[in-house]
Write a protein that binds this DNA or RNA. Structure first.
Lengths: 202, 202
DNA sequence: TTATTTTCTGAACACCATTCAGTATGTTTG
DNA sequence: CAAACATACTGAATGGTGTTCAGAAAATAA
């Protein structure tokens, strides 16, 4: 019978309704300031209903993160598709930094926020894995073609990701104030990631 | 008269009493889980009293951050004092990463946590400046002696700091799960920072 | 139509940061 | 010494938070 299938669909729809309302409010006001009550208000349900679809606020965050990682992956796919793997690597770096600067709240959700109940190890580790692999694949090609001054893919990926993430997250937490002021942030961050890639290539 | 001076002293003492109790609890339970009530309980005062010394919870955080930055600076001074600036740079990187891994909650306080009311631009920007300068000075010496493959001190400092911060903060947020498992974290992070410094030098 | 299952509600619970009228303590003045 | 004043402190109250759960409502099955 099709009823249970429709119900299944409706359940997913409602879950998405909650998720997209949550995402919107997370981006507008931040995760901390977005309460379950406010989300419930926005979608015109009672607070309790949200707990029928999500175990707790963290669980909701994880799902929103998943969407966010897909957004970043899409950005890579459209903006970092140069044939030359080294140039593609450069594009990946620039895309990453731009993404972070243009979507600060989203970036926060993905990488910086600590969900209160964050000790569960096994779950959610797949969040962001395909996105990370986009970088790994690119580096693998670079290294295979002997274009880099490093030869350990995993190590190189970690290092590259760290530069990019470091730049974005330091900026997002206003930790770049220690640097000389009156400079265009996005220019500096782009210079930094560019010169890093240049260090990396032979 | 010495009375007002004693009072001044007592005021500072109490402020430090609050601050050190707060720091201890922040490190044990994290910033979010440490409530003003609990701090007040620990020092056997009422919650209201804390607001006589600190405008709000953020203000307390900033003061604790200040102490924390001094701790990192001390670590630099004792563990990164090689005469050769390049070797010192390596020591700085390693010290930074070790510091982050060994004091995760402290690191969180310093760099990752977003204080709820965090829009005030001007204040607190001096927090951490001397510590950053320790890196800048080292890089300046490296560049003066023409030992690096970069020549913009500010840019280079930003990049180096980003690598180190990126490594630590990604690890602290369990974002390294996307990498192949069963590896010694601190080894990998140290390899990453070491190979970065090697990229940097001529 | 009635019984059963599913979905939803909203009050209640135990917390939180913060405020402020009132109390207690210490200091200065008459 | 006592009264006046200034300072330090209290703790209940305000308005928020995430989460739970008995009971109401709606949808489905019999």
């Amino acid at each position: 019978m099709g009823i249970s299938e429709r119900k299944e669909r409706e359940k997913l729809d409602k879950k998405q309704l909650i998720r997209s309302a949550a995402m919107k409010m997370f981006l507008e006001d931040g995760y901390a300031k977005t309460s379950i009550r406010k989300i419930a208000d926005a979608i015109e349900y009672s607070p309790g209903t949200i707990y029928l679809y999500y175990k707790d606020k963290d669980e909701l965050l994880y799902d929103v993160q998943h969407d966010a990682f897909n957004q970043l992956l899409e950005a890579f796919k459209t903006k970092a598709k140069h044939k030359d793997p080294v140039k593609r690597l450069m594009q990946i770096g620039q895309t990453y930094v731009s993404f972070g600067l243009q979507n600060p709240e989203l970036y926060d959700l993905m990488f910086i926020i600590r969900a209160p109940t964050n000790v569960d190890e096994e779950l959610h580790k797949d969040n962001g894995e395909p996105t990370f692999d986009y970088l790994v694949d690119c580096l693998k090609e670079c290294i295979d073609k002997d274009l880099l001054r490093m030869n350990d893919v995993q190590l190189c990926a970690l290092q590259t990701w760290s530069v990019a993430h470091g730049l974005v997250s330091l900026d997002l937490r206003c930790r770049l104030k220690v640097m000389s002021a009156d400079i265009d942030k996005s220019k500096v961050l782009n210079s930094a990631i560019e010169s890093y890639v240049k260090l990396l290539i032979k």
